[in-house]
Each structure stands twice: as C-alpha cells, then as structure tokens.
C-alpha cells in the first residue's frame, strides 16, 4: 500500500499553527486535497537542484534603503519619540 503523505493529525496540527477552526468535513476534504497537491509538486524531484542556489527575489535587488535625507511621509506622525494618533478615550 502507498504510504500516506499526510495524516489527520497533521491537518489538525497545521490548523492549529494557522489558527483556523476546521469542521470535520473540512478536515477530511483538506486531507485529500493537500495530499493531491503534495503529490503533484513532487515533479520538481525530476530536476537536479543540489548545485543550484535558491531565488528569493527575481530582479536581484539587495540591501534597499531610503535615500539619504528622504523621509517617510506616509507613516504615523512623530513628536520627539512618540507617535501622534487620534485620541482613543
């Protein structure tokens, strides 16, 4: 028999990590659907990747900062080291 990729316990654990409340029906459904998806993406194993570096940013930007003297006009207004917000109480 084919080894199961995911178990019901896995789904419950993922739901807990994701802070989602799932119905029994959803648990069954996601178990099946996630398994299908995980099976599909295994096609990546057909490619050799051991000598390839990962990409996290497609246009090769690194270390992006605000230019000197530029200010963040869209943030909350500051007075000395405090934020100025509307009165709450």
């Amino acid at each position: 028999m084919k080894k199961k990729v995911l178990t019901k316990e896995d789904i419950l654990h993922l739901a807990k990590l994701s802070n989602l409340k799932l119905s029994d029906e959803e648990i069954e459904k996601y178990l099946k659907q996630l398994e299908e998806t995980v099976e599909y993406v295994k096609n990546l194993d057909e490619l050799k990747t051991d000598k390839v570096s990962p990409t996290s940013q497609t246009t090769n930007l690194t270390d992006v900062y605000f230019a000197d003297g530029e200010t963040n006009e869209r943030g909350l207004k500051l007075k000395e080291k405090y934020f100025i917000v509307k009165r709450i109480m």
């Binding site: 995911l6 896995d10 789904i11 993922l14 739901a15 990590l17 994701s18 989602l20 799932l22 959803e26 996601y30 659907q33 996630l34 998806t37 995980v38 993406v41 990546l44 490619l47 990747t49 390839v52 570096s53 990962p54 990409t55 996290s56 497609t58």
Partner: peptide
C-alpha cells in the same frame, strides 16, 4: 483556508528543505 494550510505545511519544520527551499532552487533554474 486551503492555501494557508498548504503554505503552513511547506514552511513547517521537517518539510521546509524538501518543499520550500527546493522550489526556490527550481525557480533559479
């Protein structure tokens, strides 16, 4: 919900290298 669940799975301990990092490598390819 389905997408959050799958994303949480591929990022979780023990699966990160097999899924997330490997996919990032294939992205390079």
């Amino acid at each position: 919900k389905r997408r959050i669940m799958l994303g949480t799975y591929t990022l979780s301990y023990g699966y990160y290298d097999a899924f997330y990092k490997n996919a990032q490598k294939v992205r390079s390819i």
